[in-house]
Amino acid sequence: MTTSVGHFTEAMVEVASTQLYMLKGGTGRPLIVLHGVEGHEGWLAFHEALAEHAAVYAPAHPGYGQTVRPTWMETIAHQAVFYHWFLQEASLQGVDLVGVGVGGWIAAQMAVMCQANLRHLVLVDAAGVRPRQGEVVDLFIIPWREVIERSLSDAENCAEALRIYTATPLQEFGGVREAGRSMSMRMCYRPYMYDPALLPTLGKIRLPTLVVWGAQDQIIPIDCGHLYQQAIPGATLRVIDRCGHWPHFEQPEALAEIIHEFIAR
């Protein structure tokens, strides 16, 4: 099933008996965007900006509401396996893989597992490694509204966040976002937001890798950005100013521009 809405299409794609919710827009080389704990909030300004030069795939991870969780899926590594199956079944090759937050963790895990179908790796304020200094803010014991506010450097003036949370206001319990928060809890609770085996295995990545961090990220310390950059051979780190933990919400054009520049090389 595929329906076309504006500049993108909406489809359920079958991957190993799971119906994967997928938005797709633009033409060019395939570029996959993996979302983070914020969940799948539809076709974003970020997707639109990327779609000017690429065929953008924006899936909702299994367990995050729009895509039902297969009962075996419990971990980030399971997500990575699943998305490799998607690449195979969709016959995608030379993929530019972009992940934000927990999506960055999934992307890094995918690159560690197999790089055959990948071309570039972009990790944006990615979870997955433990900072040497500071702590990742515990998103599971503060109100969700506060998570959103602290994920943005200037929540009151973030047009994308205002659009998203006005169109579909937060609710106390239930709904698609509850499913996503539960799935994040399932995968990232303990150890909290990192896998001790990830950092030691990043050194085998041979993909051109860009690490991007919001200068005002108050959720994941930028030390994690340095760790990713140092662990992945040849990786570069770019910092976006006036930007918190969610650059794809707060600086969508600037982030897309940096990514275009990187993957065009």
Binding site: F140, I142, P143, W144, F173, R181
Partner: peptide, 14 residues
């Protein structure tokens, strides 16, 4: 707060 009493995934909500 709700996140302490019933963290996401803890309670059946619907």
């Amino acid at each position: 707060i709700r996140e302490w009493m019933a963290p996401p995934g803890y309670a059946t909500v619907d």
